[in-house]
Simulated scan of single mutants.
Amino acid sequence: MSITSRLNDLGVTLPDAPAPAANYVPFVKTGNTVYVSGQISNGPDGFITGKLGADMDVAAGAEAAKTCAISLLAQVKAACDGDIERLKRVVKLTAFVNSTADFTDQPKVVNGASDFLVEALGDAGRHARSAVSAASLPLGVAVEIEGIFEIE
């Protein structure tokens, strides 16, 4: 099944790739590898803000992480000149969770992105990963995730 078909089955339409918010590029291609800059949690109503362990629970954090994964795929699609079917696999995610000093469920939050990528891409969505705490993130967002992808 194509990636586009799987996304359609999940009710997900990839948005236009978000523009960078500072002095960086949204992605870098080298050979068959795409490095995507950190994508922040952003939903239909704007930035998804909050601090896990204070004013946001794990389920809401996981949904925020899923929005990051959708933005990552949008960037990969842009890197592939609009052809998401060129994506071969997710290689690695590095995730930052805006959380209190005593919050320890960062992996559960980032599962929102990981689970979505596996659901959308099958085995090609399985990846290596880091999930770390951050004292704060840009614009007060709950989650930021960067990724490395293999393309054709």
Rank of each mutant, 00 (worst) to 15 (best):
E144C: 12
D102E: 14
K29V: 15
K108S: 15
L139E: 10
A62G: 10
P44I: 00
E85Q: 14
P18F: 02
A142C: 02
D57E: 10
A62C: 04
A19P: 04
P107K: 00
P20H: 07
S5E: 14
A74C: 01
G46C: 06
L73C: 08
L52N: 13
P138Q: 02
A65D: 08
R129W: 10
H127K: 12
A128T: 15
V58W: 03
A134R: 15
A74P: 06
D57K: 04
A142I: 01
A113R: 02
Y35H: 13
V25A: 15
P15A: 00
K88F: 02
I40M: 12
V76E: 12
S133F: 02
A62Y: 02
I145D: 08
A64V: 03
V132L: 10
N32R: 15
E85S: 13
R89V: 03
L137G: 09
V109E: 04
C80E: 08
L137S: 06
Y24P: 00
A65L: 04
G112Q: 08
P44V: 01
I151G: 07
A17I: 04
A22Y: 11
C68W: 01
N42A: 08
K29C: 06
A22E: 11
N32Y: 08
D55G: 06
P20M: 07
L73K: 08
T49C: 01
D9Y: 09
A131M: 03
G50T: 04
T13A: 14
E63F: 00
I48S: 11
T67Q: 10
T100W: 04
R129N: 12
Y35I: 09
V34P: 03
V28K: 11
V76Q: 09
A62I: 04
V91K: 12
I40C: 06
G11V: 13
T30A: 11
A113Q: 05
D115Y: 00
I70D: 02
F103W: 05
L139Q: 09
N8S: 13
S133C: 07
N111G: 12
A17Q: 14
A142M: 05
A135K: 13
K92L: 14
A128E: 15
V25N: 14
V132P: 05
L10I: 08
